[in-house]
Design a protein around this nucleic acid. Sequence first.
DNA 1: TTACAATAGGGTAATTTGGGGA
DNA 2: AGTGTCCAAATTACCCTATTGT
Lengths: 73, 73
Amino acid sequence: MSAPTQNSNERLLTPGEVAALFRVDPKTVTRWASAGRIGSIRTPGGHRRFRESEVRGMLADLTSEATIGAQRH
Amino acid sequence: MSAPTQNSNERLLTPGEVAALFRVDPKTVTRWASAGRIGSIRTPGGHRRFRESEVRGMLADLTSEATIGAQRH
DNA sequence: TTACAATAGGGTAATTTGGGGA
DNA sequence: AGTGTCCAAATTACCCTATTGT
């Protein structure tokens, strides 16, 4: 079965938790969702939740390691 | 084995904060990241974040004190 | 139901980005 | 080679009040 959209057994993160991972303001995470840069799920009350796997994946993709090992001039 | 991208529970610093620690212009920190001298994490919007542990490590490395002379104060 | 922290909105500063040039 | 500065555009942070989550 191909399940592009993960089933329910997926941990959800709050805007505040996602914001902490990226070191941004929770409002910024909301803006990402509105802009379609990140998938979001709305609670019946209108609050947003984010898939942890998607967030972790984005974080990994956007991470760059240093390619030069502490050089000394 | 692979733990290249250290997951969360890692404090991140903004370009301005790193610049303040090194007493350089934020743009200079950006150049370090572009040159691969320091690892970086981009927000979906393109802004950079830096690992505090890596920054502290760099600070410690380039902190060299006089090895001879200047005894006393 | 009450109390309180977090979030959703909208507006307005502050920061960051990228390029070019000193 | 490495930094600091100027610029315009984009992104993010902080302000507020009302609503939602626990």
